[in-house]
Design a protein around this nucleic acid. Structure first.
Length: 448
RNA sequence: GGCCCGGUGGCAGAGUGGCCAUGCAGCGGAUUGCAAAUCCGUGUACGUCGGUUCGAUUCCGGCCCGGGCCUCCA
C-alpha cells in the first residue's frame, strides 16, 4: 500500500515519491493573525494534520512547517482599531490559534515560523531575485518581473495575458508589467518597517513563504498545501519566487488544496461575514466533533457548514465512545487495513470514517480506537468524553457529585419498585441535560 | 470574458462500466418496570439530452443549474 495524492500542478492523482526518502518535508500556509480564525481556516489544518499523521506512519522522518503571518496590512489596521500594539495583537491571536487548533486535534507542526523573525531571509531572497534579473526596484518598491519567468501561471493554468485581461484592480504606475507583484514595499514612519537595501519597508505577502520554506525545508521539498483560494496568486507567486531565486525546476513536488466550507451554498469568508470562529464553536461543541465534521467530506470537496452537522458528528462520537466505554481499551497495534487504505488514497477520510463505523462493535473496540487514532479521534478517556458539556450548561448544570447522588437515590427507589420516584429523578436530570442509561452493569450517565 | 470545480436516496456523503457504500432521520421488531442506549430488519438514489457499449450514475459530447479564482482570502 502506498500513498497517492491529487496534485494541483497536474490535476491528477499521483503516487507520492519523496524527494528525499529519508526525510519527507511539507509546508502548509497558516493564518494571518489579526483575529480568531473561522472554521474554514481550520479545514486545511485538520486535513493536512491527518496527512502529517499518515506520512509519519510511512516515513522515517517528516518535517511539517505551518507558518504564522504576523505582518500584514490587516494586522496594522486591527491593532490601530484595538488601540494595542501589533506585537500584542499578533501574540494574543497566534496563541489563541495554536490553542484552538490543538482542541480540534491537530498536532503541533514541527516548526511554526513567524514572518517577522524571517525578514532578514526575505531581504536576502529579494536581493537574489534582483541579482538574477527576476526583480527590479521602482519608487521604493521591489517587484517581481513576471515576464522573466517563462512558465509563470502553470499552477493556476493561466497565462500572463489572461491575468492582465481579467484584472480587477488598477495597475500601479511603477509596474513594468501589469502582472508584476510586490516583493517589498515602503513603510511610512508610522507603519512598521525594516531597513533594507531599498529603504525602510516591509515584505509583500508571498515572499515570506518562499523564504521560510527554504530556510526550514530547503530550496525544494515535497508537499505544499493550503486552501483552494491560495492557488492564485499566493502559491503561483511563491513558485515564481522560489524557482527563480534558486533555479530549480520545481519548488514543491506536490501541491495540495482543500475545498471551501460553505454556508448556504456560499463560501464562508471574513469579508462576507458568514463565518463562525472555531473559538466560539468550541464553547458549544467538543473539538473532536468539529474535527469529525471537517473530516466527514473529502478535503477537496466543498463542505456545507451547519450546526446540525456538528450535532450529528457529536452523536456519532457518542456512539463510538459508547463502544469504548467501560472497556479500558488499548488501541490495537497499527491501523486497521480498511482505514489505512482509504487514507492512502488521497486522504479519503469519509471512506475511512465508514470503515470506523464497521468497527464500532464491542469485539472490535481495540481496532476502532486504533483507526480513530489515524484520524486524530477517539483518544480521550470515554468517561471524560461523556462528562463534556457546552460552556453554558457546564457552568449552570449539576455537578458530577450531584448526579451521582441522584443516581444513588434512584437506584434505591428502583430497588423498592417505586418507579414513579425513579422516573421523577430521571426526568429531573434529563431536564438538566443529563441522560441516564440503565444496563445490567448499572446506570451510566452522559451530558447530552 | 478567461480559467477551474461540482450536481448521488428526506439529509450528510463515498464509490463503481453490470452486484452492499456508510452515517443520520423515518418505519417495523427485539430488549427494557417504563425509558435511554444497543441489536435486527427496512429504501424503484445517481441534473438533463444525446453518443459509445451486450450493459452507463460511472466513459464521451451538448445543455441546464450551483460554486470558486482572475492580485484581501483556508
Amino acid at each position: 500500500m502506498s500513498l497517492v495524492v491529487y496534485n494541483t500542478l497536474t490535476r491528477e492523482k499521483e503516487p507520492f515519491v519523496p524527494v528525499d526518502p529519508a526525510h519527507v518535508r511539507m509546508y502548509v500556509c497558516g493564518p494571518t493573525v489579526y483575529d480568531y480564525v473561522h472554521i474554514g481556516n481550520a479545514r486545511p489544518v485538520v486535513a493536512f494534520d491527518t496527512l502529517y499523521r499518515l506520512l509519519k506512519r510511512h516515513h522515517p522522518r517528516v518535517t511539517y512547517v505551518r507558518n504564522i503571518t504576523d505582518i500584514d496590512d490587516r494586522i496594522m489596521v486591527r491593532a490601530a482599531d484595538n488601540g494595542e500594539t501589533i506585537e500584542a495583537l499578533t501574540n494574543r491571536t497566534a496563541a489563541a490559534y495554536s490553542a484552538d487548533m490543538r482542541r480540534v486535534g491537530a498536532l503541533d507542526p514541527d516548526v511554526a515560523p513567524r514572518a517577522t523573525t524571517h525578514v532578514g531571509e526575505m531581504i536576502e531572497l529579494i536581493a537574489r531575485l534582483i541579482a538574477r534579473g527576476h526583480a527590479y526596484e521602482a519608487e521604493g518598491h521591489v517587484l517581481f518581473a513576471v515576464p522573466s519567468m517563462a512558465d509563470y501561471g502553470r499552477l493556476s493554468r493561466r497565462s500572463r495575458d489572461e491575468l492582465v485581461a481579467g484584472a480587477r484592480v488598477e495597475v500601479a504606475p511603477y509596474k513594468r508589467d501589469p502582472a508584476d507583484f510586490v516583493l517589498w514595499k515602503p513603510s511610512t514612519p508610522a507603519q512598521p518597517g525594516w531597513d533594507s537595501p531599498w529603504g525602510r519597508g516591509r515584505p509583500g505577502w508571498h515572499i515570506e513563504c518562499s523564504a521560510m520554506s527554504a530556510k526550514h525545508l530547503g530550496e525544494t521539498f515535497d508537499i505544499h498545501a493550503g486552501g483552494l483560494d491560495l492557488i492564485f496568486p499566493h502559491h503561483e507567486n511563491e513558485i515564481a519566487q522560489s524557482r527563480s531565486a534558486f533555479g530549480h525546476a520545481f519548488m514543491a513536488r506536490y501541491w495540495m488544496h482543500n475545498g471551501f466550507i460553505n454556508v448556504s451554498g456560499e463560501k464562508m469568508s471574513k469579508s462576507l461575514g458568514n463565518f463562525f470562529t472555531v473559538h466560539e464553536l468550541l464553547d458549544q461543541y467538543p473539538g473532536e466533533a468539529i474535527r469529525l465534521l471537517l473530516l466527514s467530506a473529502h478535503y477537496r470537496q466543498p463542505l456545507d457548514f451547519t450546526h446540525d452537522g456538528l450535532v450529528q458528528s457529536k452523536a456519532i462520537l457518542d456512539r463510538w465512545y459508547g463502544v469504548l466505554r467501560g472497556r479500558a481499551t488499548a488501541a490495537a497495534p497499527g491501523v486497521p487495513d480498511g482505514v489505512e487504505r482509504a487514507l492512502l488514497d488521497d486522504l479519503n477520510t469519509p471512506l475511512a470514517i465508514a470503515e470506523l463505523h464497521a468497527l464500532a462493535t464491542p469485539q472490535h473496540a481495540a481496532e476502532l480506537k486504533a483507526g480513530g487514532a489515524a484520524l486524530g479521534l477517539l483518544q480521550v478517556d470515554p468517561e471524560e468524553w461523556f462528562r463534556w458539556a457546552p460552556k453554558e450548561a457546564a457552568a449552570s448544570g449539576p455537578t458530577d457529585a450531584e448526579i451521582e447522588a441522584a443516581i444513588t437515590a434512584r437506584r434505591a427507589a428502583r430497588a423498592a419498585r417505586n418507579f414513579a420516584e425513579a422516573d421523577r429523578i430521571r426526568d429531573d436530570l434529563k431536564a438538566r441535560g443529563i441522560v441516564l442509561e440503565d444496563s445490567a452493569a448499572g446506570t451510566s450517565w452522559k451530558r447530552g
